[in-house]
């Protein structure tokens, strides 16, 4: 596996951890811990299986959240500093819509449309069928369309 691939995996786990923790420093700690735990788990025979890494990251994030170390919101809900251009206003609207969505739906959108995970990976991660993932995605898109009020296309 090339270093670019590894960096992509790192970025995907990092984004996921950022989403869950809303703290970039903690997210980076969780990302690195995820890699180390995955390598020590014995599942890393032929390479990096992203669904296992997400599962590890999710558990680590849950541990961190339980310890109450959540920092102020960043990322998805952080619209501060945006320029008042049309694109920026669109961005603010999108962020606002995402902010109103259920966390599970936002997570699904992040994994599918930002991290680019396949339906198969998502169904393995959530432990449900591919059809169930399609349905949940459809529901999340509909909720987003309703809250955003834009033309999804």
């Amino acid at each position: 596996m090339g270093s670019t691939d590894l960096e992509q995996i790192y970025d995907r786990i990092y984004r996921y951890a950022c989403f869950r923790l809303r703290d970039s420093h903690l997210a980076e700690d969780v990302t690195q811990e995820t890699f180390l735990r995955y390598l020590n788990s014995g599942k890393a025979g032929g390479g990096y299986e992203i669904r296992y890494m997400y599962a590890i990251a999710r558990n680590l994030c849950a541990d961190v959240s339980r310890r109450g170390r959540r920092a102020p919101l960043q990322g998805v809900l952080n619209a501060a500093g945006a320029d008042a251009t049309e694109a920026a206003l669109d961005g603010i609207a999108v962020r606002a819509a995402l902010g109103e969505m259920a966390e599970a739906d936002r997570e699904l959108l992040l994994l599918r449309y930002v991290n680019g995970e396949s339906i198969g990976t998502l169904s393995a991660l959530y432990g449900c069928s591919r059809f169930a993932i399609y349905r949940r995605l459809k529901r999340a898109r509909a909720a987003f369309r309703r809250l955003w009020g834009g033309d999804e296309g």
Binding site: M1, Y10, Y14, S24, E28, L39, Q74, L98
Partner: peptide
């Protein structure tokens, strides 16, 4: 737009960590 909305600060320790990371072992 969604990608932009989900943008987070760039990780600062990525390169150093990946350089030190040993590849997964093979049974």
């Amino acid at each position: 737009q969604i990608r932009a909305a989900f943008s987070y600060p760039e990780p600062t320790r990525k390169r150093a960590f990946l350089r030190k990371l040993r590849p997964p072992g093979v049974g």
